[in-house]
C-alpha cells in the first residue's frame, strides 16, 4: 500500500508544482522519477513523451500512467494518474469559486477584458512555435490549412477532422513509401 501512496504523492508533487503543462514538466519528472526515485530512466521517459505526443490525451497524464503501470500495474497506473490530476482539480476549483463571487465587479471585468487579449497573444505565439515545429513539408501546409478551413467555416466536429487527418497521414505517407520502393 505504501508504494501506491508513494506513486500518488510523487506525481501530485510534480502536478502541483510545475507551471506550463507537459513540456515544462519534463525537467521536474527527470529529477523526481529518474534521479530521486529511480523508477525509470531518462531514455524511457523520453520514449513515454514521444508516445504521449501521438496518443490521445494529455501528455503529462500519459507519462504518469506509463510510469505507474510499469511500477505497479493497473492499480499503480491509477494512483499515479490520480496523483497527477488531483492538485489541478483542487487548485482550479478554489480559484474558480473565488472568481465567481467577484465576476460582477467592474474592476474585475475590466481586468478580464485585458486578460483575454493577453491570452490571445500567448496562444498566438504558442501556435507560431507549433507551426515552426510541425509544418515543414508542402503536404503539412495542406493538412494544416484544410483543418483550419474545415474547423473555422464548417460545422464539422473536430472529431471528424482529427480522424480525417490521421487517415490522410497514413494514406499519403504510405503511398509515398510505396513509390520509393
Amino acid at each position: 500500500m505504501k508504494e501506491y501512496f508513494d506513486l500518488f504523492l510523487t506525481f501530485a508533487r510534480i502536478g502541483g508544482f510545475t507551471f506550463g503543462g507537459g513540456y515544462a514538466m519534463l525537467p521536474m519528472m527527470q529529477r523526481e522519477l529518474v534521479e530521486k526515485k529511480q523508477w525509470t530512466t531518462n531514455e524511457e521517459l523520453l520514449n513515454y513523451y514521444a508516445v504521449g505526443q501521438c496518443t490521445p490525451g494529455i501528455i503529462a497524464v500519459n507519462t504518469a500512467t506509463f510510469v505507474g503501470s510499469k511500477r505497479k500495474g493497473i492499480l499503480g497506473a491509477a494512483f499515479a494518474t490520480l496523483g497527477m490530476v488531483t492538485p489541478s482539480v483542487i487548485i482550479i476549483m478554489l480559484i474558480a469559486s473565488f472568481l465567481k463571487n467577484f465576476a460582477d465587479y467592474p474592476v474585475v471585468q475590466n481586468a478580464f477584458s485585458g486578460i483575454r487579449i493577453a491570452v490571445c497573444a500567448t496562444i498566438l505565439v504558442s501556435i507560431w512555435n507549433l507551426w515552426k515545429k510541425s509544418v515543414k513539408k508542402p503536404l503539412d501546409y495542406i493538412f494544416c490549412i484544410v483543418a483550419f478551413l474545415l474547423s473555422a467555416f464548417t460545422p464539422i466536429s473536430p472529431v471528424w477532422i482529427v480522424l480525417l487527418a490521421a487517415a490522410g497521414g497514413i494514406f499519403t505517407n504510405l503511398k509515398k513509401e510505396d513509390n520509393k520502393e
Partner: peptide, 27 residues
C-alpha cells in the same frame, strides 16, 4: 502510427488556430 501522426501533427495546428479565432472575435 507514425504516418497517422504525421498527418495529425500539422492538422492540429490548423484546428487550434481556428479555435483561437472565436476568442479573438470576442475581443
Amino acid at each position: 502510427v507514425q504516418t497517422a501522426f504525421a498527418g495529425l501533427r500539422s492538422s492540429v495546428v490548423g484546428l487550434i488556430s481556428a479555435a483561437v479565432l472565436g476568442i479573438m472575435e470576442l475581443s
